[in-house]
């Protein structure tokens, strides 16, 4: 096992929670899981011990990945609306980050659309429409363009 994917990490986390039982706190679980992943990857002969396995796992997953970025005034239902339409199209959310600067809300979602029964254009149209209903400006791009521009 050279690289852990998201499924492995989830399994590892569930096992950790089970073993820790009532003493499990979010911090403790995170630390234990991180250590476990380090051990596994080190054993597997990896030269680099990655302390953020999710990042690495996400990077190495091959497939069709897009980044959905939305901005607008903060209001109820932004996250629900965007993730709802993604879920309906069977798009898998790999990572998500959001920022609130005063009233201005920005959300970025890394999405795997490999398992989706619909194509990129349909997802783009539908997510943009949902965004517009929430008064958001939505930009959807394939992930590789960011790697090309921002990584040497």
């Amino acid at each position: 096992m050279n690289h852990l994917d998201e499924k492995d990490i989830r399994k590892l986390t569930e096992e950790t929670v089970k073993q820790l039982g009532s003493s499990a706190t979010p911090e403790l679980v995170e630390n234990v899981v991180k250590e476990a992943i380090d051990r596994i990857q080190y054993k597997a002969g990896s030269h680099v011990i990655d302390t953020s396995p999710l990042k690495k796992a996400a990077l190495q997953q091959s497939g069709n990945r897009i980044i959905v970025t939305a901005f607008g005034k903060n209001r109820v239902g932004i996250l629900a609306g965007l993730t709802g339409i993604l879920a309906r199209h069977k798009c898998n959310i790999l990572d998500l980050t959001q920022k609130l600067l005063q009233e201005f809300f920005t959300i970025m979602i890394l999405v795997d659309i490999n398992e989706s029964p619909v194509d990129f254009d349909t997802i783009k149209t539908d997510v943009t429409r949902v965004g517009e209903e929430l008064d958001l400006k939505v930009v959807i791009q394939h992930e590789e363009i960011f790697n090309a521009m921002h990584r040497v």
């Binding site: 990042k55 920005t106 970025m108 890394l110 363009i145 521009m149």
Partner: peptide
């Protein structure tokens, strides 16, 4: 996120603004 939030925002600013 494998790509930093600032990098995504910079890219979008470049194209949109």
């Amino acid at each position: 996120m494998p790509i930093a939030i600032e990098e995504i925002l910079e890219t979008i600013r470049m194209t949109e603004v």
